[in-house]
Design a protein around this nucleic acid. Structure first.
Length: 637
RNA sequence: GCCAACGUAGCUCAACCGGUAGAGCGGCGCAUUCGUAAUGCGUAGGUUGAGGGUUCGAGUCCCUCCGUUGGCUCCA
């Protein structure tokens, strides 16, 4: 049989051969570093024989596919350790896949629970298993045999999994006394991966459904090298330090009173400044792109929500209230309000597109367990827009939205990624319309040259959508902006416009939010900048620190000048040492400190220290103001 | 909602086997009048998340509830 290598070269073999043997042939070094192979696009164990013509690539620890191998194996090592500790008969295995940055395994422990303090013990046992350097062997059973085998072991979840596998044969992996149903791939021996850490335990429903029993999930991470592991753990530490739930209250931006308003953040003056700057920026861009700002009521008759379909599809997430025997709903979305505005007048084809936007405060009930600082709340503000347009305008409109989003994200230094979500199983409208809409979205993304993934079947029930995921300074991704095509609402509300021929035609609705939720975006910004915001959104842009009481008067003069120039300034008049005031300003991440003492007062200058610690002495106030104005105008970060 | 852990001063944390709550920072007061990340001294601050139980005695043990954290589900 013939084996083709990535560089195009070929080699013939008469007997079945393993990728490992081939690697060894090429070089000892390659073999030592190999974790597995890719055979005809399939991840393949290093010691699994090949007996057919194929393309082959040896995967070493450096290849991006390698985590699939060693993290999978790590999950098995963990399961083996858990079984050794709790007893094979007391542990039922769920699933144990690899995930981004790590792996997990779900267990049911029949006679107890696993808690965080047990992790150390499990890690210890895992290290033992690694040291034992057990051979990992793959073998296949027929479905029948496999079910019988797992039934005997009492592994009811595995039996369930096997029953659903379509192939006649299923693969197993064996390392020492541990045998598990698994598609693979795996390392050849347990000793080949050492750098791991167990991170947390949590509950997880079997197959993600609340109707099923809850299993215990252990999360862990593993990397090819010690450095990579340490870097990742450091990143987690850094993320903890930047946690907006800590930084926000500390910097006086917001707090959440969980007692009276769980999930509904209260914004302090400084936080409100930032939100207002964000809104102003977004508002300006929307205006530039031809949107009209509107405002709609928070509380509206439930009738409206019956018509919109929210009553049927979204009731569980809504708040209700009642007066004079009339039931009202607090709005969870802004679209019905905007539709009322559309219907308020007769629309001609010449009027389209109509672009409406609103900083709409919406309330959505979320179960208490899912609330998370500003990132997951019950009350939030969307920079929500709806475009009503003709079918033939979809492409142009979507393009313009994508441009707007790009401009909006630019001054934060985010890179982002788009996903195109296609028709879900449960959908409304005919497939042809769906295809057309989906293709329109795809074409726009391609024309603009934006990288995107396709999420099959992930669209909203009324139309396909494009979501934007921003990547923050720690490499984490957050879903923010969204563009959704909707053919359903115009139908339900009988929206029309009059075309060239005087006929009534159905418009298309495009739902779009750019920041998504202002609260969430704010939370992301806090973590992205670790509280050191760009000048243009900093609540306090400059703090003036007189060296002692004697120079307060001069400080106040400067304060007045800066304030008159539209800067947000404070004077620290407290009777404290300069070092103390600098330290405090530094902790508060204030972009610029102005230090004034005898020298400055005499020379009519200022000394400036930025939050990076750089000092500039003998600066003229005018120059300083000009520089700051420029920095603000350019929205530098 | 479910699983697990946690809840002590504004913040960070301490208090042994159950013996009657303590420190730093911050606040306030006084002194100091200061040159680029913490001046010194003094002082106030607590129904130990809430309620119930066991006990001579509960921050500590048990139960219920509330909340937080990490997840599951859903989503901006």
């Amino acid at each position: 049989m013939k084996v083709i290598f990535p560089d195009g070269s070929e080699k013939n073999y008469n007997e079945p051969i393993t990728p490992g043997q081939i690697a060894k042939e090429i070089s000892e070094g390659l073999y030592r570093n190999a974790v597995g192979a890719i055979v005809n696009d399939e991840l393949w164990d290093l010691e699994r024989p090949i007996d057919f013509d194929c393309r082959l690539k040896i995967i070493t620890k450096k290849d991006k596919e390698s985590p699939e191998f060693y993290r999978h194996t790590m999950a098995h090592i963990m399961a083996q350790a858990v079984m050794r500790i709790y007893g094979e008969d007391n542990v039922r295995l769920g699933i144990g896949p690899t995930i981004e940055n790590g792996f997990y395994y779900d267990f049911e422990i029949l006679n107890g629970t696993i808690n965080e303090s047990d992790l150390e013990n499990i890690e210890k046992e895992m290290k033992k298993i690694i040291k034992e350097n057990l051979q990992i062997e793959r073998f296949e059973l027929s479905k029948e045999e496999a079910i019988k085998f797992m039934k005997e072991k009492g592994q009811i979840y595995k039996v369930e999994l096997i029953e659903e596998i379509e192939d006649e044969k299923v693969s197993f992996y064996k390392q020492g006394e541990f045998i598990d149903l698994c598609r693979g791939p795996h390392l050849p021996r347990t000793g080949l991966i050492k750098h791991f850490k167990l991170l947390s335990v949590s509950g997880a429903y079997w197959r993600g459904s609340e109707k099923n029993p809850m299993l215990q999930r252990i999360y862990g991470t593993a990397f090819a090298t010690k450095d990579e592991l340490e870097e990742y753990l450091k990143m987690i530490e850094e993320a903890k330090k930047r946690d907006h739930r800590k930084l926000g209250p500390k910097l006086g931006l917001f707090f959440i009173n969980t007692d009276v308003a769980a999930g509904m953040p209260i914004f302090l003056p400084k936080g409100s400044i930032i939100l207002n700057e964000l809104m102003q920026f977004s508002r300006g861009l929307h205006k530039q792109y031809g949107y009209l700002e509107v405002m709609t009521p928070l509380v509206m008759n439930v009738k409206l929500w019956h018509q919109s379909g929210h009553w049927d599809h979204y009731k569980e997430n809504m708040y209700f209230t009642e007066k004079e025997n009339v039931e009202y709903a607090i709005k969870p979305m802004n679209c019905p309000g905007h539709i009322l505005i559309y219907k308020n007048s007769v629309v001609s084809y010449r009027d389209l597109p109509i672009r409406m936007f609103e900083f709409g405060k919406v309330h959505r009930y979320e179960r208490s367990g899912v609330l998370h600082g500003l990132l997951r709340v019950r009350a939030f503000t969307q920079d929500d827009a709806h475009i009503f347009c003709r079918q033939d305008q979809i492409e142009e409109e979507v393009t313009s939205v994508v441009r707007l989003i790009d401009e909006l994200y630019k001054p934060f230094g985010f890179t982002y990624r788009a996903t195109l979500s296609t028709m879900p199983e449960d959908h409304m409208g005919d497939e042809e319309t769906w295809d057309k809409a989906t293709e329109a979205l795809r074409k726009v993304l391609e024309d603009i040259g934006l990288d995107f993934d396709v999420a099959e079947g992930e669209g909203a029930f009324y139309g396909p959508k494009v979501d934007f995921h921003v990547r923050d300074s720690l490499g984490r991704e957050w879903q923010c902006a969204t563009i959704q095509l909707d053919f359903q609402m115009p139908e339900r509300f009988d929206l029309t416009y009059v075309d060239k021929n005087g006929k009534e035609v159905r418009p298309v609705m495009i739902h779009t939010a750019k920041y998504g939720s202002l609260e969430r975006f704010f939370g992301i910004l806090i973590e992205h900048f670790a509280g050191a915001f760009p000048l243009w959104i900093s609540p306090v842009q400059v703090i003036i620190l007189p060296v002692s009481d004697k120079y307060v008067e001069y400080a106040e003069k400067i304060f007045n000048t800066l304030t008159q120039n539209g800067l947000r300034v404070q004077v620290d008049k407290r009777n404290e040492t300069l070092g103390y005031k600098i330290r405090e300003a530094q902790i508060n991440k204030i972009p610029y400190m102005i230090i004034v003492g005898e020298k400055e007062e005499m020379e009519k200058t200022i000394s400036v220290r930025n939050r990076e610690g750089k000092e500039f002495k003998g600066i003229s106030i005018e120059n300083f103001i000009d520089e700051l104005k420029k920095e603000i105008k350019e929205r530098r970060y």
